[in-house]
């Protein structure tokens, strides 16, 4: 697969330590806007840890230490000139369990734009909320009850609300950490459809447990094992013709 544009984010020789324990070993990877990138691998392989280094969420863990270089549009995100607040606005994140704030649906979406000052007037904010909810595929379901609490929605709706919340600040990259693992199959299908629609506008990285899901939603797949990146390539290649035995064993269900 050709890459006409330079990668949106790229990681070079990244090592992550929790205290003495090394969680990620020498990972290098590129992520671009045209493709959805899936991280797969058995649980505990470090795929979620690595995802969290991409928007410096590991900073919230006191013992975590990151080595190596990760760039966003060529700028090192771990350099002292990089502002975490800005970085996280540009690299949004959706979590495993839907975590809407205990506020109204409207306020959930408006949270990011408000703190970053993206809307100067109420009307602007209304536009942002509507467009974000539309893009999250939730507008028609909730347009009449924007004042209801975000926690009153169903699990799938909550997760789409969280995606909408992330979209509302116009990020450049969206990281999704097993976004469907807490959802039923119908809700999962909706989220996957949504990911399809968001592709091209945002660079999307999705961590998943579910290999079928990786095959369905992603164009590129990275296989992690024991903290190392074993194989990275186009999804079709990884699933049909893996180069490494470990990858083959994993996707054929030998372990996982």
């Amino acid at each position: 697969m050709s890459q006409p544009t330079p990668p949106k984010m790229s990681a070079r020789n990244v090592n992550v330590y929790y205290g003495e324990k090394q969680a990620i070993q020498n990972v290098s990877i590129d992520v671009d806007t045209d493709n959805v990138t899936a991280f797969i691998g058995p649980s505990g392989c470090g795929k979620s840890t690595f995802l969290r280094t991409l928007n410096r969420m590991n900073d919230t863990v006191a013992s975590a230490r990151v080595e190596g270089e990760i760039t966003l549009d060529g700028e090192n995100i771990y350099s002292s000139g990089m502002d975490v607040v800005q970085l996280r606005a540009r690299v949004g994140m959706v979590f495993q369990k839907p975590n809407p704030f205990p506020k109204s649906i409207y306020d959930n979406i408006a949270y990011g734009p408000r703190i970053h000052g993206l809307a100067s007037a109420k009307a602007d904010l209304d536009v942002i909320v509507e467009s974000s909810l539309r893009r999250a595929g939730l507008w028609d379901e909730v347009k009449d009850r924007l004042k209801d609490s975000g926690t009153a929605l169903s699990g799938g709706q909550q997760q789409r609300l969280c995606i909408g919340r992330a979209i509302a600040v116009e990020p450049e990259v969206i990281l999704m950490d097993e976004p469907c693992s807490a959802l039923d199959p119908i809700a999962t299908a909706k989220i996957e459809e949504l990911i399809h629609e968001l592709r091209g506008r945002y660079a999307i990285v999705i961590v998943t447990h579910n290999m079928q899901q990786a095959a369905r939603v992603s164009q590129r797949t990275a296989f992690f094992h024991l903290g190392t990146l074993v194989e990275y390539g186009s999804t079709s290649e990884i699933f049909t013709n893996p180069r490494e035995d470990r990858t083959k064993d994993y996707i054929t269900g030998r372990y996982g």
Partner: peptide, 13 residues
């Protein structure tokens, strides 16, 4: 998906 393509008004820089 039930959401239509966003109208131009909703497009953002």
């Amino acid at each position: 998906m039930n959401a239509p393509v966003s109208p131009d008004a909703l497009r953002r820089q």
